[in-house]
Simulated scan of single mutants.
Amino acid sequence: MDDDPVTTTLSAGPLLLRPWLAEDVPALIEAYRDPAMRTMLRSQVTDEATAQRWLRVRQEGWESGSYFSFAVVDRDHGSEPVGNVALKYPAPGSDNAEVGYWTAAPARGRGIAPLALGALGDWAFETFAKDALMRLDLLHQVSNEASCRVAEKSGYGFAEVLPARPPWPLDGHRHARLRTGDL
């Protein structure tokens, strides 16, 4: 992985996807105050110390080439992050990887997640083409109907129901986006 976490940015319409920065801590803490996010996400950010740890894990992911997290900024509504998209890449040579996302409560319903996931998927397929990346998976709990809609709008077709297993108490859905053509 040659991308530098300080300089890798993506654009998708009014969205800028960029690495998380230290100055994003207040927006990150505010986003995690949302009860829905606390229910759906494994990581928890409750204060500046946990936000700093969260940012450190993302930076380490870039450095190791295993986890690529982008702050999503809606340039039409300011410069603070309103979401996150991430690619969890298991190992060079793997033909599949997992994507994840969240959108801060005030930014939901504006089409941010599908647009950001589309840009992330395009970047992933292009960046890891030499490693034969062919499939991206988006996982969510069956109770998260909004994520089903986001997956479909983002080109991730429903693939299967996954049985519940810790830390998730409910069954889940796996949606998949397949690489098509030469990028």
Rank of each mutant, 00 (worst) to 15 (best):
47 D>T: 15
48 E>H: 07
98 E>L: 06
80 E>F: 00
81 P>R: 02
46 T>Q: 12
155 G>Y: 05
24 D>L: 06
36 A>H: 08
24 D>Y: 05
78 G>R: 14
58 R>H: 11
25 V>T: 11
172 G>E: 04
89 Y>P: 00
31 A>W: 01
157 G>E: 07
97 A>H: 05
58 R>G: 15
69 S>I: 05
15 L>W: 10
171 D>S: 09
122 D>W: 05
104 A>I: 13
83 G>V: 07
65 G>W: 04
4 D>V: 03
67 Y>R: 09
12 A>I: 10
46 T>S: 15
97 A>T: 03
8 T>V: 13
88 K>S: 13
154 S>P: 01
152 E>A: 08
178 L>F: 10
155 G>F: 05
1 M>E: 06
157 G>H: 02
9 T>D: 12
19 P>Q: 01
65 G>A: 05
182 D>P: 00
101 Y>D: 05
104 A>Q: 07
176 A>D: 03
76 D>I: 04
39 T>V: 10
39 T>M: 06
94 S>G: 07
169 P>A: 06
130 K>Q: 14
149 R>E: 04
150 V>D: 01
67 Y>I: 04
112 I>Q: 01
81 P>F: 07
113 A>C: 05
117 L>N: 03
7 T>P: 01
68 F>E: 12
20 W>Q: 11
13 G>V: 07
6 V>Q: 10
100 G>V: 05
170 L>I: 00
80 E>G: 01
63 E>L: 15
50 T>G: 13
139 L>I: 13
114 P>G: 05
5 P>N: 03
104 A>Y: 03
81 P>W: 03
135 R>I: 15
149 R>M: 08
111 G>R: 01
104 A>N: 06
95 D>T: 15
180 T>W: 00
21 L>M: 10
121 G>C: 13
140 H>W: 04
93 G>N: 13
167 P>F: 12
36 A>E: 14
164 A>E: 07
163 P>C: 08
141 Q>H: 11
72 V>I: 12
169 P>N: 02
33 R>L: 14
43 S>F: 12
108 R>N: 14
125 F>D: 08
6 V>D: 14
104 A>L: 03
131 D>S: 10
63 E>K: 00
72 V>P: 02
35 P>F: 06
74 D>Q: 09
183 L>H: 11
27 A>S: 12
1 M>C: 10
9 T>C: 14
62 W>T: 04
74 D>T: 09
156 Y>N: 14
2 D>V: 09
54 W>E: 14
116 A>R: 08
127 T>N: 09
137 D>S: 15
134 M>L: 11
171 D>E: 09
97 A>V: 09
2 D>Y: 02
122 D>S: 13
6 V>G: 05
165 R>E: 15
110 R>M: 14
24 D>R: 03
84 N>R: 09
94 S>K: 03
40 M>G: 00
19 P>A: 08
90 P>H: 14
154 S>N: 04
75 R>F: 07
18 R>H: 13
30 E>C: 09
78 G>K: 09
175 H>I: 03
73 V>N: 04
96 N>C: 15
91 A>G: 08
129 A>H: 00
129 A>V: 13
89 Y>S: 02
162 L>K: 08
77 H>G: 00
82 V>W: 04
38 R>C: 11
113 A>N: 01
19 P>E: 01
71 A>I: 12
29 I>T: 03
22 A>C: 04
132 A>C: 10
127 T>L: 11
80 E>I: 00
141 Q>W: 13
